[in-house]
Nucleic acid binder design. Structure first.
Lengths: 218, 218
DNA sequence: ATCAAAAGTGAATCCAGATTCACTTTTCAC
DNA sequence: GTGAAAAGTGAATCTGGATTCACTTTTGAT
């Protein structure tokens, strides 16, 4: 029965490999590239075998979407949990989100904005809502200390998501990738604008600490 | 040859009727409802005849998208052209855009966010960019008078579009329509948040005139 | 009235992928 | 070693709507 355990591991590995392969295909060519035949080919499996692991193609894609989205949400959440006042944490989270999106632009574009099946898009909306909820939490917290505008936290967080995502869409979709400088500037600008929108105290520019950190890196 | 002119008119009328029918179908059931068979049926034409007027289905849909989008852009532009200082005009435009979206929620949802063919989505992005450009113009104008934040006008307008559109998506997609009060409140909140984000002078709440106008209506 | 061109028709065809399934191979508890 | 169950296979099938096209009807200049 030790063999059974090994087998179980193999199965799990295969399952994860398929997810990975699918994610990579999406990261290379968007949803269009995630075809069952391609996924099977690169996974070293036959098409039929994929259906031992996932009920449908959409199922598989939703799984990928879920994994990546949840991970990003966790990253953001961990930033929102640490640090100084709520506004500063919010700004940091926004900056990090934007920067991270540019690590795999094609993937980010697919997960954020690329046209896709309605079922997939539904899931996408769910995870976007999820991210908004994460932001809403800090906003709620800061609001109780009067650090944020007096507007329903969920509305405010939704606007933040919009103001943060919208300017990403075009750059992410472009063939030419942004330079490091452009990306940093974009992240800073977006974060600052979101600060303006949400914060009562006018914290227009980045905190001294963050500024120092960034200039040191250059 | 007087007859020829009449014929020409008939043709043009048919063309417009098809566009209208398609728009209505989208307004009822989104892109999914805009099937060639349905369009033909309601237009009183055969499927084949549609292809005398439009090369492909996407072509037809893009045409609908273009008409509606351009019209909305004009409405916004006319508001941005009139009135007082640039910020007030911007706020009014945002409020009107939001309110108008709720006149035909299903249509607005389709034109703004509903999943669709990539070619359609491409066109959608174009028209969203177009709207951003319209906003960018006033922002540019106001910026020269120091009324707006010192950020590239196109970035600022994109963030405005995002902050304005994102909170519309869920409400527009919902089956239950928002009440008049909810819609007004949403429009005001969104506009105020965009003001905060973009304006240097803190014009947090609606102008006295606008407030009076609205309270009189209730 | 005539007839070539324009407009209309809708059943038949096409399409590109997802999905199925009868079959083969591998696994592992006994 | 055996055999039932699990995993793997991929050619054949399915699917749902767009598109075509050979044909009919209408138009309007002559």
């Amino acid at each position: 029965m030790a063999l059974a355990l090994v087998r179980k591991q193999v199965i799990e590995d295969t399952y994860n490999r398929v997810l990975l392969v699918t994610r990579d295909l999406i990261a290379e060519g968007g949803w269009q590239a995630a075809q069952m035949s391609a996924i099977a080919g690169r996974s070293g499996l036959a098409i039929g075998s994929l259906y031992r692991y996932f009920d449908t193609k959409v199922d598989l894609c939703v799984q990928v979407l879920a994994q990546v989205s949840e991970h990003e949400a966790m990253v953001v959440q961990s930033i929102l949990a640490s640090g100084d006042d709520a506004p500063s944490r919010l700004r940091d989270a926004i900056r990090v989100f934007v920067r991270r999106a540019f690590r795999k632009p094609r993937l980010a574009y697919a997960l954020i904005a690329e046209p896709c099946e309605s079922e997939l898009d539904e899931a996408r909306l769910r995870y976007r809502k999820n991210l908004a909820d994460v932001f809403a939490e800090v906003i709620q917290e800061g609001a109780s200390r009067g650090e944020f505008v007096a507007v329903p936290a969920d509305l405010l967080s939704t606007c933040v998501i919009g103001a943060m995502m919208e300017p990403l869409i075009q750059p992410l979709a472009r063939e030419r990738e942004l330079s490091r400088g452009e990306r940093e500037a974009l992240a800073d600008h977006i974060a600052d604008l979101c600060m303006r929108m949400t914060c009562v105290t006018s914290v227009t520019s980045a905190s001294p600490a963050a500024k120092a950190r960034r200039s040191r890196k250059r």
